[in-house]
Design a protein around this nucleic acid. Sequence first.
DNA 1: TAAAGTCACTAACTATAGTCAATATATGAT
DNA 2: ATCATATATTGACTATAGTTAGTGACTTTA
Lengths: 211, 211
Amino acid sequence: MNKEKISKRTAKADETKRKIYESADQLFKKHGFDNVSVDSIVEKAGVSKGCFYVYFDSKNALITTLIADFVDTIDLDYKSYLESFPPGTMASDILFSFVEKMVNTIACTLGYDLIKMLYEAQISRTVNTEAVMGYNRKLYQVFSSIISQGIKQGDFRTDISVDTITKHCIMAMRGLTYEWCIRYPYFDLNDQSLQHFEILLNGIKKQKAPA
Amino acid sequence: MNKEKISKRTAKADETKRKIYESADQLFKKHGFDNVSVDSIVEKAGVSKGCFYVYFDSKNALITTLIADFVDTIDLDYKSYLESFPPGTMASDILFSFVEKMVNTIACTLGYDLIKMLYEAQISRTVNTEAVMGYNRKLYQVFSSIISQGIKQGDFRTDISVDTITKHCIMAMRGLTYEWCIRYPYFDLNDQSLQHFEILLNGIKKQKAPA
DNA sequence: TAAAGTCACTAACTATAGTCAATATATGAT
DNA sequence: ATCATATATTGACTATAGTTAGTGACTTTA
């Protein structure tokens, strides 16, 4: 009976959750993830600590929610970037451009602190990062369509499924990003990613007809 | 004047450090990294908490020391494994066997808990993991010699340096391991690694003479 | 509209990593 | 032997994430 009802009570609850979320967002942007405590978030939001844990399972969970919301925007941007290529463009060219686009987003738009936090959250597994690593993430569709195109153009191998190649590519990108995180700032994500994908792409392309 | 002197004092200090190290090792093996507090370690070792922080910078630092010690043993094992191949074996065959060997070591000998802890420690960067990720790690030499052999045998590309290929291979292995950590247990490290290296190796091999 | 029930919220609590000023003890010089 | 110095060690302290029993406000039901 009490489903979907916007009562005075639920309205207040939504407002409380929003206040916590906004306060955290502002504090994180100002001081960085590592320098903001739950205490400072709830103080700014004007609620108690226990209240925080009603709406978020953990500090990491809140951070991951923030990131997941961002990822959604990012993936939409990726999608429109992909659609900006004129039909008939070689898939391998698109792939390289797209890798550069991703690298730029990771290193510049999102930035080291945020990405490091996300990768830490992912591996600590104290929080559900499905939105970022789930195979239904829009990013997989974007990659998938590039690979499909390469196969249609007769340039890519056909003995491995589109789905499999897609997963290996995204895993490689994640691996590169992890390496960037642990070696920062002594690792040029752009150079290394392009070099790595040159090798990987070479392994995905159909071999030239043997003699 | 007081360098390298084994006095009653330094002997006791060494003994104290060893006690902490051993106590931690035993407790970690028994309860897992996540379920052992610094308090419980110092209690078992019979020293104070402050004393712990004289010998180890953090709990993570102690864990990483334990892991680094283990890694040393592992790398020696890798080296002797490599030397067990008869001269003239194809480098690409060695590479695949070696990947399987590494996967087995990671998943079975070391195990999920330990690897997850290491990867968390690496990315949190609250501790120096040079021993594991430093380019002077023995593992790089082992990989390097496989790649060199492939080039000598005329099977691998020569337009990228041995050093570069080595780094990309190890980074790929690290990426696979990271993926295993975040998707455990729904990710078959063995299958995925072999499949991934099939692609990567394909990209490293010299193309068959074009028609 | 009054009682019963549900839900948002509080604040004091625990657990645990890490710090630091004070203390105890070994060593070296006179 | 005695004192001064260096160093190993202590334990009470802070900081911070997360828990929980309790309270009061809102909603439903009779």
